[in-house]
Nucleic acid binder design. Structure first.
Length: 418
RNA sequence: GUGGGCGUAGCUCAGUUGGUUAGAGCGCCAGGUUGUGGUCCUGGAGGUCGGGGGUUCGAGACCCCUCGUCCACCCCA
């Protein structure tokens, strides 16, 4: 056993999986940049207070924060998600609106790890600030849906709901408190504890005994403002116009306190464990204000890399890209010829790799095979003497001698034929 | 954070009621083939059996603790 291992909930992403991650982010960048979103790289840690604005009953903040005091005595925290940092950046820089950005990178939450749940986990996402338009809500949702489709995913389920305006949310919370309190004896003890903290979240319980009580709970749409209802209806119509299928789930609450009005969540029907939630988001009108900025509406989503890739595995799509160099150079003389030839090839835009430590030709050929190069260039004593190179096509095994000075042209010719 | 399953070579796993020097397949290295990979054959390297303590003449197997991982709850991506 090695003396050191990765810390719990963290891991090394090695090839070929690492290539898949990069491809994932490339596809995402392509999808959202085609819709006018610009790349933003917020810092990985911020003042703790920035994240506290996510809400005092948000467990991500109250229980799972990686916070510490730095050498200057500042109380900082690793970001548990990126929306707060983006909103802080908005307040700090005051870009013109609508401000549409996308991000990709790791977040940190101190949780007990499981498959699809890590302490350092990657998300990609977008945020759009400064527009109240319900068509923007629909655009954001449509972008996420398109991205899943771009990955080749088919079994993705979209749930949407509205939480009403800030006041509505509080009012509904009181209604739920009254309802659940009346049925307290039928709730699990866990739900009773949740009820005391945040009545909305009782709706999220997956425990069987709670389901009957939850099913009878009053729906939020009955207690939200007329304008919030109109906004939601407009979002739904806009989704219909794009032929995006969804389910209205009036139990969908989501754990981050800042959500207002539109909320949505994507789950994979191909996954069956606890990690079926592969993405989600919503409006957070009020968050910018909480961070000291002017009243500014905002909406966005975040998608989990790991879970989405698990869904890809389950649906057998978006496989890891294979990487291969074009040329593998075998040198049985002294290694110096391979050294210089690789350099020359690379300078001419041809990818090339080689073996080291002057191993046997058999071993070097084996490396050539593993490299997946389509052409091997072999240099032995005969070649050095005659200023030639043996060019071998790895697929067919066909090989022939070329003049050393013609190597670039011959290699290009061989690669084109392939 | 609560409860449960599982930790044996790089990987996937065997390992009989505790009993000599802990095995296999794949992978890796070398040789067969002193100029040729993908097939085949032969050989080799690689393990303080997650870690610590205990029971025993004897522990990979049993007990306790601990760490890690997986599952459920919780939470969420």
């Amino acid at each position: 056993m090695p003396e050191f291992k990765t810390s719990p909930g963290t891991r090394d992403i090695l090839a070929p999986h690492s290539g898949r991650w990069r491809a994932f982010q490339d596809v995402f960048a392509h999808t959202v940049e085609a819709a006018g979103y610009n790349f933003i790289i917020p810092p990985m840690f911020e003042d703790l207070d920035v994240f506290l604005r996510l809400g005092e009953t948000t467990e991500v903040v109250t229980k799972e924060m990686y916070d510490f005091h730095d050498k200057g005595g500042r109380h900082v925290a690793l970001r548990p998600e990126q929306t707060a940092g983006v909103c802080r950046a908005y307040v700090e820089h005051r870009p013109i609106t609508p401000w549409k950005v996308w991000y990709a990178g790791p977040n940190f939450r101190y949780e007990k790890p499981q498959q699809g749940r890590y302490r350092q986990f990657d998300q990609v996402g977008v945020e759009a600030l400064g527009a109240d338009d319900p068509l923007l809500d629909a655009e954001v949702i449509a972008l996420a849906a398109k991205f899943y489709a771009d990955l080749g995913l088919k079994k993705v389920h979209l749930s949407v709901n509205t939480l009403g305006d800030a006041g509505d949310r509080e009012q509904y919370s009181q209604i739920l408190l009254k309802y659940f309190s009346a049925h307290e004896k039928d709730l699990t003890s866990e739900s009773r504890a949740t009820l005391a903290r945040n009545p909305l979240r009782v709706l999220d319980s997956k425990r069987e005994p709670d389901q009957k009580v939850i099913a009878g709970a009053p729906a939020i749409r009955e207690s939200i403002s007329e304008s919030a209802n109109q906004h939601f209806d407009a979002v739904l119509r806009a989704l219909d116009a794009l032929n995006i299928s969804y389910e209205i789930n009036n139990r969908l609450v989501r754990g981050l306190d800042y959500y207002r009005r539109t909320t949505f969540e994507f789950t994979s029907l191909a996954l069956d464990a606890a990690h079926t939630a592969i993405g989600g988001g919503g409006r957070y009108d009020g968050l910018v204000e909480a961070l000291g900025g002017p009243a500014t509406p905002g909406i966005g989503f975040a998608l989990g890399l790991d879970r989405t890739l698990l869904a890809c595995d389950a649906e057998n799509t978006f496989v890891a890209p294979t990487t291969a160099v074009q040329i593998f150079v075998v040198d049985t003389v002294d290694g110096g010829h391979a050294h210089e030839l690789c350099h020359l090839l690379r300078q001419n835009g041809i990818s090339a790799d080689r073996a080291y430590d002057l191993r046997s030709i058999k071993a070097q050929m084996k490396s050539a095979d593993r490299s997946a190069a389509s052409v091997a260039l072999i240099i032995g004593s005969d070649e050095v003497q005659n200023s030639t190179i043996m060019l071998r096509k790895m697929g067919s095994g066909e090989q022939y001698s070329i003049a050393h000075k013609d190597v670039i042209g011959e290699v290009l010719k061989a690669l084109n034929v392939k």
